[in-house]
């Protein structure tokens, strides 16, 4: 009985607070993406177009570790029984990647371009019995500065 009450409390807390925080995070991501839209980012090894005289290049990176709420974890567990697209993890992945790329851009606002962008994902926290609920995304690339 107590177990059930604790569970219900956790799941509703996870659902309402989790939804709210996710909405807020997405709003912030969208706003910052618009602000940084003019910083050229590419996966190519060469700069886009004619940049002019390059003063220096440096390795830049940004990372983010994001976790999903209890509610989504339960839904993902249920989904694993039936198979199919695990929707609860989609936003987790999407948010952490966009956040990592944004942090990468924010770390070098003076750069003219970021080239050779690479993205790595790993699960940092493995709870008991592979109960994974959080991912770490590392975005790295080369910032090109011009004179």
């Amino acid at each position: 009985m107590t177990e059930l009450i604790i569970f219900a409390a956790l799941i509703s807390l996870g659902f309402f607070v989790g939804q709210y925080l996710e909405k807020r995070h997405y709003a912030s991501i969208q706003m910052r993406e618009k602000q940084l839209i003019n910083l050229v980012t590419t996966t190519s090894k060469t700069p886009v177009g004619d940049v002019g005289e390059i003063s220096h290049c440096t390795l830049v990176s940004g990372n983010a570790v994001i976790s999903i709420d209890y509610f989504k974890r339960i839904v993902a567990g249920l989904r694993a029984i039936f198979g199919g697209t695990v929707r609860s993890y989609e936003t987790l992945i999407d948010r952490s990647r966009r956040e990592a790329i944004l942090r990468l851009k924010e770390s070098c606002p003076e750069a003219a371009q970021i080239i050779n962008l690479r993205i790595e994902t790993s699960s940092v926290f493995k709870g008991k019995k592979n109960d994974v609920g959080s991912v770490e995304v590392l975005a790295y690339g080369t910032a090109v500065y011009i004179k």
Binding site: E3, F7, Y70, R73, I74, G77, L78, A80, I81, K128, K129, N130, D131
Partner: peptide, 9 residues
């Protein structure tokens, strides 16, 4: 529920 301990709850 497999290894997922929270599902068992």
């Amino acid at each position: 529920t497999g290894s997922d301990s929270s599902l068992t709850a």
